[in-house]
Computed example of a mutant assay.
Amino acid sequence: MKILVTGAYHKDHEKTKNLIKGLKLLGVKIIELPYRSLKVDLAKKIALLSRNVDAVFLPGFTHSNVKQIKK
């Protein structure tokens, strides 16, 4: 299983780190792509990566990014 973790999240946030660590321990391949602001080229990269993963996960406090990622 592959999961794309993206959004304007902080990689150092304890809950996010623990969740990603736990998924990796279960054998899930994690592709991390955090960003500060979503530019056109980054949106294209996310669209391309999302075609080859089983799920796209936006960590806590990234609810405002859902609309952007959904496009």
Score class of each variant (00 low, 15 high):
4 L>I: 03
18 N>C: 04
50 S>W: 11
65 N>F: 08
66 V>K: 13
32 E>R: 02
26 L>Y: 04
44 K>N: 09
26 L>F: 11
6 T>Y: 06
71 K>I: 10
41 D>F: 10
13 H>F: 15
56 V>E: 02
22 G>Q: 07
39 K>H: 11
2 K>P: 13
21 K>V: 00
40 V>C: 08
69 I>E: 04
46 I>P: 02
36 R>D: 14
65 N>L: 04
58 L>P: 02
35 Y>K: 05
50 S>I: 05
13 H>C: 10
46 I>W: 07
10 H>R: 14
38 L>Q: 05
18 N>W: 13
44 K>Q: 11
70 K>S: 08
47 A>H: 05
39 K>M: 12
30 I>T: 06
71 K>W: 14
5 V>H: 01
11 K>E: 14
22 G>I: 03
46 I>L: 05
32 E>W: 09
29 K>F: 04
48 L>V: 14
8 A>D: 12
46 I>C: 06
25 L>D: 06
41 D>W: 08
3 I>G: 05
66 V>T: 05
52 N>P: 01
16 T>S: 02
55 A>V: 06
15 K>R: 15
45 K>P: 01
1 M>T: 15
39 K>L: 06
24 K>T: 11
52 N>W: 08
18 N>P: 01
54 D>T: 10
31 I>F: 12
49 L>V: 02
29 K>P: 04
34 P>R: 09
5 V>F: 03
21 K>A: 00
10 H>Q: 15
44 K>I: 05
33 L>Y: 07
44 K>D: 09
60 G>M: 09
18 N>I: 09
67 K>F: 14
14 E>V: 08
64 S>P: 00
16 T>V: 09
21 K>T: 00
7 G>Y: 11
50 S>K: 13
2 K>W: 12
64 S>T: 12
14 E>A: 01
32 E>I: 00
9 Y>Q: 00
23 L>V: 09
19 L>F: 10
25 L>T: 04
66 V>D: 03
32 E>H: 01
30 I>A: 02
61 F>Q: 13
27 G>E: 02
11 K>L: 08
68 Q>Y: 15
48 L>R: 12
24 K>L: 05
56 V>D: 01
13 H>T: 14
